[in-house]
Lab assay of single mutants.
Amino acid sequence: MTEYKLVVVGAGGVGKSALTIQLIQNHFVDEYDPTIEDSYRKQVVIDGETCLLDILDTAGQEEYSAMRDQYMRTGEGFLCVFAINNTKSFEDIHHYREQIKRVKDSEDVPMVLVGNKCDLPSRTVDTKQAQDLARSYGIPFIETSAKTRQGVDDAFYTLVREIRKHKEKMSKDGKKKKKKSKTKCVIM
C-alpha cells in the first residue's frame, strides 16, 4: 500500500485542523484551538488504489514558523489553505509557496490551493482571484467548507493525484537520464 505524506499549511484560523478532522473523523470542530502540530493517518481508496494518507496539520501562528522547514522537508505534497473571508490569509499563500519551493529546492512541488469556509456569506476573496492565482502557479484550486464537508475529500484526493503525477514524471525523467548515460565512448 502506497503511503502519501501530505502537509496542510496556511495562516492561523483558516480551518486547516477543521478540514483535516472532517476528512479523518467526519465531524466539524467549530471551536478554535490553535494547533502546534498534529499528525493523522487514514486509509482510503483513490482511483481504485488503496493508500495510506499521513497528514500533518501544522501551526499557522507566526511564533511556530521555525518548525516549518522541518515538516516541509518531509512532506510530499501540500494543501495551501486560505479562508475566503480573510484576504490576508490569501496573500500569505505566496509566502508559504515560496518557502516550500526553497526548502524542497524545487520549482515543481505537488500543491493544491484550497479556499476554505465557502459556506460563509462574508467572502472577501473572489473565486476568480483564487483561480487566477492557482493557474499562475500551475496547481489545482478547490473551494471547501469544513463545516458542510463540501470539497473536503476532493481537496485531499486531488493532492494525492498531483503527487502521483509528480512521481510518474520524475521516474520518466530518471529513465531518460539513465538511457543517456548508457551511451559509451570508444577510443581507438
Rank of each mutant, 00 (worst) to 15 (best):
T2I: 05
E3L: 04
E3F: 06
Y4W: 05
L6C: 04
L6D: 00
L6H: 00
L6I: 10
V7T: 14
V8E: 00
V9A: 04
V9Y: 04
G10S: 00
V14T: 07
A18C: 08
T20C: 08
I21K: 15
Q22E: 11
L23I: 05
L23Y: 10
L23R: 13
I24Y: 08
H27Y: 08
F28A: 09
D30I: 08
D30V: 07
D30C: 08
Y32K: 09
D33Y: 06
D33W: 05
P34H: 05
P34S: 11
T35C: 05
T35F: 06
I36S: 12
E37L: 03
D38M: 05
S39F: 04
Y40C: 13
R41S: 10
K42Q: 08
V44D: 10
V44T: 10
V45I: 12
D47R: 03
G48K: 08
E49L: 01
C51I: 10
L52Y: 12
L52I: 12
L53Y: 03
L56V: 14
L56S: 14
D57I: 15
T58L: 08
T58R: 07
Q61Y: 04
Q61E: 13
E63Q: 08
Y64D: 15
S65H: 04
A66I: 11
M67E: 13
M67R: 09
R68K: 12
D69A: 05
D69G: 04
D69Q: 05
Q70F: 02
M72C: 08
M72S: 06
R73I: 04
T74R: 09
T74A: 13
E76H: 14
G77L: 08
G77S: 01
G77K: 00
F78N: 00
V81L: 09
F82T: 11
A83E: 15
I84M: 15
T87G: 13
K88L: 06
E91K: 12
D92M: 03
D92Q: 13
I93L: 12
I93T: 08
I93E: 01
Y96A: 03
E98W: 01
E98K: 10
Q99S: 06
Q99K: 09
Q99V: 12
I100Y: 00
I100P: 00
R102E: 08
S106H: 06
S106G: 12
S106W: 13
S106A: 08
E107M: 08
E107G: 10
P110F: 02
P110R: 01
P110D: 01
P110M: 02
M111S: 00
M111N: 00
V112Q: 00
V114K: 00
V114E: 00
G115W: 04
N116P: 00
N116G: 07
L120C: 10
S122E: 14
R123Y: 09
R123A: 14
D126Y: 08
T127V: 13
K128Q: 14
Q129P: 04
Q129N: 11
Q129L: 12
A130P: 04
D132Q: 11
D132V: 06
D132C: 07
L133G: 04
R135P: 04
S136V: 06
Y137T: 05
Y137N: 05
Y137K: 06
G138M: 02
G138D: 11
G138Y: 01
I139E: 01
I139H: 06
I139N: 05
F141Q: 05
I142Q: 14
I142L: 11
R149A: 14
Q150N: 14
Q150M: 13
G151T: 13
V152T: 06
V152R: 03
V152K: 02
D154L: 11
D154F: 07
A155Y: 00
A155M: 05
A155T: 02
F156K: 00
Y157V: 15
L159T: 01
V160S: 01
V160N: 01
V160P: 00
R161F: 02
R161W: 01
R161P: 00
E162N: 03
I163V: 14
I163M: 07
R164M: 09
H166L: 09
H166P: 02
E168F: 11
S171M: 14
K172M: 09
K172I: 14
K172S: 10
G174E: 07
K176V: 01
K177S: 12
K179S: 14
S181P: 04
S181N: 14
S181C: 07
K182T: 13
T183H: 12
T183S: 15
K184R: 10
V186Y: 02
V186Q: 14
